[in-house]
Design a protein around this nucleic acid. Structure first.
Lengths: 183, 183
DNA sequence: GAAGCAATAGACCAGTCGGTCCAGTGGCGC
DNA sequence: GCGCCACTGGACCGACTGGTCTATTGCTTC
């Protein structure tokens, strides 16, 4: 743990690649090549190999998004306003790169039948996001925090899939327009 | 074309497998084994191999869902009622199998960077669904058919992702409950 | 400088991948 | 019965997969 940069670099690069091509679509050699690290380093930091790396990458990206939810909602004065701000925030994050990346959890989801631990990871990260939104919904006085959290998560997830398919943030701007009418 | 059963069998089985494990997560050998067909048959019916099979499988499943949209909305007396019925219909279709399958388009989406034709296919199928919903929205007198179509597509997509992650149709029933309040 | 450990470097492995190729096979038209 | 052709059967290929293993490096602590 003396030098965390190699481990972090693997996680960051793996997360980016998985979000573009999915878990099964990315080979270790591609990750290693982009990171400029040999195979020995990967198996030193992640003894269980690809699956463990994917789990770490998903949790890392999941935590990043949860921070984004937290800081964005913290600035809002109502739940609906917060929802709109979150939508805009994800849209701009997603478009800031040359390739629109998928939701980090989605990347590993289809590998779940092959790697059971990844399914658990996906469910936990989703649960964590929902709890986070629910917390803010309650704080901002929404009458049904759990319904509100599910609904927003659902809409964001759907918009993200469509945005990924079209490689454009149009779906997010459309969703934002819809959310704005509820203010 | 004299005996379409082999070709159809390949499409059906490929679609099922892709929707469970994603395009890159399924090997040709697995498809062939389950279909009980040799490799020669596959490359006879689909000279361009896996990519062409995946495209056919996606369009096939896409057409199936579009028929479901059409027949379901045809029975509705308002757009909101139709939306609710569609949600229920997908929920029951998805749960009728031992494994909750992902949206057929989602399966091939993450392979888009590797197989450009699949990205086009995905966009076309999505576009076709949206157009179909829009048509019914207009027919049923919705003030903004395009917004309504996007919104419903987005919600269904999100619910499907969550349902797939949890291998349960709870997300659809929750969405249905939400849609019911708008009636 | 020696010992010890964290970390890197990459050769190597068996297995699988998608794809190619050609020899067979069965039914239909003649 | 013969030829034709749609289709099947499967051996075979090079490339690549995730994973293992050992040698080596370089820093730290005596």
């Amino acid at each position: 743990m003396s030098d965390p940069t190699s481990r972090d670099k693997l996680i960051r690069i793996a997360s980016n690649l998985f979000r573009q091509k999915g878990y099964s679509g990315v080979g270790l050699s591609e990750i290693l090549k982009e990171a400029g690290l040999p195979k020995g380093s990967l198996y030193y930091h992640f003894p269980n190999g690809k699956q463990e790396l994917a789990e770490a990458a998903t949790r890392w990206a999941g935590a990043w998004l949860e921070r984004l939810l937290d800081t964005t909602f913290a600035q809002a004065e109502s739940f609906d306003e917060g929802a709109l701000m979150v939508c805009d925030a994800i849209a701009s994050e997603v478009t800031s790169q040359t390739h629109v990346p998928a939701c980090p959890v989605l990347s590993i989801l289809q590998a779940a039948p092959l790697e059971p631990r990844l399914q658990i990871t996906a469910q936990e990260v989703y649960g964590s996001w929902t709890k986070c939104i629910e917390k803010h919904a309650e704080r901002l006085g929404h009458p049904r925090p759990d319904d509100a959290a599910f609904s927003l998560h659902c809409q964001l997830q759907g918009a993200w899939v469509i945005a990924f398919a079209h490689q454009s943030n149009a779906a997010f701007t459309q969703l934002a327009r819809e959310l704005r009418t509820k203010l």
